[in-house]
Design a binder for these strands. Structure first.
Length: 316
DNA sequence: GCGACAG
DNA sequence: ATCTTGTCGC
């Protein structure tokens, strides 16, 4: 199956990521512990060991939360140019980081480590981010357009507190705009936000809320308007649900009139302040018309879902 | 130097 | 996304 990360366990209906993918956090700290004293690595190198250099910022964000420094030796992780970087977060502690490195035999001059002498790069690690990209290619090829005109629309969003996700879905009748109900779901997440991998962070929290009764699900994020045509709306859509993405900003593509083009191809459309793109089982026209219809009668379903998820978190 | 990326 | 103070507009 193309979506291991969303696979169900038995008949319980629960879907987890941990069954299929390693934990970003655990894997990262394992890697950091392998850097010997006297050596350093870089944020990008650690990200690359896990399969994508683009996750370098997520690596830095996780390392900045080291609860017991200097035990997992996050001070041995520096910038790609040898710059010392921060220690303890928010621009603080470069001196302490430099002192620790010097005490371990790392030469620091002009505020920089000579990476040609001190770079450790003997990481052997499952490149799971690469595997996720490969899965995204399979997801993209499974996307389908079309279906009957939707009469029901549900908007979905997720709010966070630490590694806990609070997901919400709000339902509307398309013709009257009447709000007919909502569903909530709370769960732990174990992947940080990494551009291009949003579906692996938020998908597991949203999937249990989806319903295969012909309704169109509008998800906060992109569908085909993604570097590998596999945004979160596609991941959820290829599970058999009708799904489109509605995002507030672009991940890729250029705006040309109302269309968003990638390599000259229309992958999405800007309407009502949202970038809309197909997830699966719906056409771009249908998704845009549904959103426009609700906006026209004064209802912003995405904002409603955002507030519901936010309220759900606050009251939990 | 430029560009900088859903949530 | 979240954090957090201040500020603007209805």
């Amino acid at each position: 199956m193309a979506c291991r990360y969303l696979s169900h366990r038995g008949t319980s209906g629960s879907a987890t990521t941990t069954e299929c993918w390693p934990s970003f956090r655990e894997l990262l700290w394992d890697l950091v512990r392998r850097i010997p004293a006297g050596k350093v690595s870089t944020y990008g190198a650690l990200a690359e060991a896990m399969g994508d250099r683009g996750a370098a910022r997520a690596v830095g964000a996780e390392l900045s939360g080291n609860p017991t420094p200097p035990d997992p030796p996050c001070h041995r992780v520096v910038y790609a140019d040898g710059g010392i970087g921060w220690y303890g977060g928010r621009g603080r502690g470069a001196e302490e980081k430099e002192r620790l490195l010097r005490s371990e035999g790392v030469e620091v001059s002009q505020g920089r480590v000579d990476l040609s002498r001190h770079l450790f790069s003997d990481f052997r690690c499952r490149p799971f981010l690469t595997e996720m990209r490969e899965e995204q290619d399979a997801v993209a090829s499974a996307v389908t357009n079309g279906g009957a005109e939707p009469a029901l629309v549900s908007a979905m969003d997720v709010s966070y507190r630490g590694d806990e996700a609070f997901a919400a879905r709000v339902d509307f009748l398309l013709d009257s705009g009447e709000e007919t109900g909502h569903r909530l779901h709370r769960r732990r997440v174990d992947l940080p936000y990494i551009p291009g991998y949003l579906s692996y962070r938020e998908g597991p929290a949203l999937l249990p809320l989806m319903e295969d009764d012909g309704r169109l699900h509008l998800v906060d994020g992109h569908g085909l308007l993604h570097p590998r045509r596999a945004g979160i709306a596609c991941h959820l859509g290829v599970r058999g649900h009708r799904c489109a993405g509605a995002a507030k900003s672009l991940l890729c593509g250029v705006l040309s009139d109302e269309s968003v083009l990638v390599d000259g191809e229309e992958r999405g459309r800007m309407t009502g302040g949202y970038y809309v793109s197909v997830g699966s089982n719906v056409t771009l026209d249908q998704a845009c018309e549904a959103l426009e219809r609700l906006l026209d009668i004064g209802i912003d379903p995405c904002r409603r879902a955002h507030r519901l998820a936010s309220d759900f978190k606050r009251s939990s």
